[in-house]
Amino acid sequence: MSARILALVGSLRAASHNRQLAEAAVKHAPEGVTIELFEGLETIPFYNEDIDVEASVPEPAARLRAAAAEVDALLLFSPEYNGTMPAVLKNAIDWLSRPYGASAIAGKPVAVVGTAYGQYGGVWAQDEARKAVGIAGGTVLEDLKLSIPGSVVRFAETHPADDAEVATALAEVVQRLSAHASGVTA
């Protein structure tokens, strides 16, 4: 089984625990699975239909769409900001949802995971991301969830890649996502 997965991280902070979680997914991906971390979400302008014009789509948005079109699945990493997903992640989903009827993520398997400081690990934000990406055309894998609470304490001295419980759970999510992408589901 092989699959290419595009990872979008909803936190822009350099030392973000969600960024570290994405790095852990890359490190612990099963053999044959490639996870590509998309760089540059912060450079994509807020979605505006006036600038989403064929042949003049802003380069960062066009690059995001092209990256999504070239992979088999998407893996979104969302922290929780004020009870919902970060604007940068929602903006990426908005750009990926267009052009209407020809979304770069139409029918592609998508899983949403993440970590947050609170006791629920960002589940509200991740649920909102699932809702938005599903409406945008992605095939949300509702049963693939990983919400890690207490990120500030849990990852204060340990990178998620070095946390055995997290690495195992994350590898399972990636393996199941890649199976869906390959059409090999059980």
Rank of each mutant, 00 (worst) to 15 (best):
S97N: 02
E165L: 09
L96I: 09
V71C: 09
S151Q: 00
E70V: 05
H17E: 01
V26A: 07
L170K: 09
Q20G: 14
V26I: 11
L41S: 12
Q119T: 14
H17V: 04
A167F: 12
V113N: 03
P45I: 00
W95C: 12
N82A: 10
T139A: 15
G107H: 10
P30V: 12
R98Y: 09
T84G: 15
N82V: 08
S182T: 11
G150Q: 05
K108R: 12
P160Y: 02
G138K: 04
Q20N: 11
A156V: 05
Y100W: 13
E142C: 06
G150Y: 10
S151A: 12
G101Y: 06
Y47M: 11
N18G: 00
T43Y: 03
G121P: 00
L141G: 00
I44Y: 07
S178Y: 01
V88R: 03
G134K: 04
Q126H: 10
P149M: 00
A69E: 15
G121Q: 00
T139P: 00
A68D: 05
T84V: 13
L64P: 09
K145M: 13
A87Q: 11
R154C: 02
V113S: 06
K27M: 12
T158C: 09
A125M: 01
L76W: 14
V88A: 11
P60D: 07
G40N: 14
Q126M: 11
R19T: 08
H17S: 06
G114A: 10
R130E: 06
G40I: 15
L141N: 04
N82L: 07
S56V: 10
Y100A: 10
M85P: 03
S78W: 02
M1A: 14
T185L: 13
L170D: 08
A62G: 00
V110C: 12
A169L: 15
N82M: 10
H159D: 14
V133C: 06
D52V: 03
G83R: 05
I44L: 10
P60G: 09
F38A: 06
L21Q: 01
L74W: 07
A186T: 14
T168N: 13
A136P: 07
V26C: 12
